[in-house]
Design a protein around this nucleic acid. Structure first.
Length: 224
DNA sequence: GTTCTAGAAC
DNA sequence: GTTCTAGAAC
């Protein structure tokens, strides 16, 4: 009897939940509806970085030419973005020999940034071949990949396949050639990379699901 | 890029 | 029944 009453209560509370969606969602719908009436911007979120790099809350350090911020959704214990202030490019694909000095400055600043962390972590420094956010940004990320923000296969593969282009490779290429045409993957290859099986970056383990990969990565991190 | 959630996969 | 992924979001 008591359990029946409890089940009934649960049922009715679930119904209540259905009839009253979370306020967060309502606000979102209202905001979208407003933006549609006046300025329909399908990809408004792409400019998120441009906002973040100008918000002192996020800035780790800043110079005339570069700003370094913490990634808002870090995919590892340490995850920074090194962003050139005065560049119009959205992707590393368009970098040329003319950008070599800038890239070397970014490399120097990145190495300085992680200098004191090298006893705690290893780092990857590079660009996503196909970034989602506008404004060229260099990822400086620790290789533990232990983070609650790491959730999807795309997250993992974007850093752990040839979708991730190491800065030192880019610099090497531009020292011998004018552009990155013969280093850069095609759009088709990029799609394949992002859908690859989930291979651990520290051993031969292949995970079947993201949750199992995350559990596995934690075992590497705790054995350090 | 994230959030949300339907329905696939287990 | 629960876990997990993947596609929509105008």
């Amino acid at each position: 009897m008591a359990s029946n009453a409890f089940q009934h209560l649960m049922k009715s509370s679930r119904k209540l939940a259905e009839n009253n969606p979370p306020s967060k969602k309502r606000i979102k719908i209202a905001a979208v509806a407003t933006s549609n009436e006046r300025t329909p911007q399908k990809h408004f979120w792409k400019s998120g970085l441009t906002q973040a790099m100008n918000d002192s809350e996020n800035i780790v350090e800043s110079s005339d030419s570069l700003v370094i911020i913490k990634d808002k959704y870090p995919k590892a214990k340490f995850h920074y973005l090194v962003i050139p202030k005065d560049i119009q490019l959205n992707s590393a694909r368009e970098l040329t020999k003319l950008h070599l000095n800038l890239l070397k400055e970014m490399q120097q600043k990145s190495e300085l940034l992680i200098k004191d962390l090298l006893s705690k972590a290893e780092f990857k420094i590079g660009f996503h071949a196909k970034p989602s956010m506008d404004h060229l940004h260099l990822h400086v990320i620790s290789t533990d990949f232990v983070s609650s923000c790491l959730k999807t296969k795309k997250h993992w593969n974007s850093f752990n396949t040839k979708h991730f282009l190491s800065l030192s490779d880019l610099i090497k290429k531009l020292e011998e050639k004018d552009n990155l045409d013969d280093l850069y993957p095609s759009d088709i290859d990029i799609e394949l990379y992002l859908k690859k099986a989930l291979n651990c970056n520290q051993c031969q383990f292949e995970a079947k699901t993201m949750p199992s990969l995350k559990t596995h990565l934690e075992t590497h991190a705790s054995s350090l």
